[in-house]
Design a protein around this nucleic acid. Structure first.
Lengths: 137, 137
DNA sequence: TACTTGACTGATAGTTACTATCAAGCTGTA
DNA sequence: TACAGCTTGATAGTAACTATCAGTCAAGTA
């Protein structure tokens, strides 16, 4: 059983955000002790994980709540949950692709700046060209 | 030369966001025609690309403005820009790693739901376990 | 026993980065 | 000439945090 602070550290989500998520109904089975303090079980950590996952991929909170609700309803919602997960996976792969391209751009810039510094040469390109040259794709 | 609408389509950024970014000073060299309409050059598109890149990796707008300003200052800021790009690249790699792990989770869930549907079996796990089982890492 | 420290609570306000709505202006076709 | 379709800036609204605050509680120390 973990306090909100321990969960924040363990899962790398701020206490504020965890409270906000709790208030949003993202942790449907969470328990409290006699002092009204939230105590997260291992299962609750798994809910944190899936919420973090969906959030990171850009799923909006309303849609996350919908998914959580479907989970708590039970068997009858499996097909719908399956679709949500497939959609999310698709979005995740798109993000991954975009990130890869953007990493290429950053690599190009890193090399560019590095060569300018190493050679101690003067940047003769104007800022537009030096900073925005196309990456060879 | 592209209008804001054309840039929005081409770069997959909304017109609203482009205007917001323009107002934030993210396109320092942008020109207007005699009717005050913004016209984006190819170089401006490269600025859009780098802003999109930084934004996507989580750089906040204030920091993006700082980078843009450094670019427009010129040679003297190359070392500083180099550091920014290195930091951004680091963050991008971290995002990539996180995304990979989250894709594993989604894959696990996809398979799980799929097998439940295919076998037409009943979901015997409670919602917590069915939706939050740990992915074998 | 009194006091301080530290973690928790909910309520509320503030911030960031959009996102939508609006009135107004220009342009090209019917 | 009208109107459709694009643009503009100003302004308001929204999502998702993020920070601040007053208050509760338990444990440790003087």
């Amino acid at each position: 059983m973990y306090t909100i602070k321990e969960v924040a550290d363990k899962m790398e989500v701020s206490e504020h955000t965890l409270r906000f998520w709790a208030k949003s109904g993202f942790f449907p089975y969470i328990k409290r002790n006699e002092n009204n303090t939230r105590l997260f079980t291992e299962e609750d950590l798994e809910w944190v994980k899936i919420v973090k996952c969906l959030r990171n991929i850009g799923t909006e909170n309303k849609a996350i709540k919908k998914y959580i609700d479907l989970c708590t309803i039970g068997d009858s919602t499996i097909a719908e949950r399956f679709e949500i997960i497939k959609d999310t996976k698709k979005k995740a792969l798109e993000r991954m692709d975009e990130l890869k391209k953007q990493l290429e751009l950053l690599n190009w810039k890193e090399n560019y700046y590095n060569s300018l510094i190493e050679n101690k040469s003067i940047d003769r390109c104007n800022p537009i060209n030096s900073d925005c040259q196309k990456v060879a794709t």
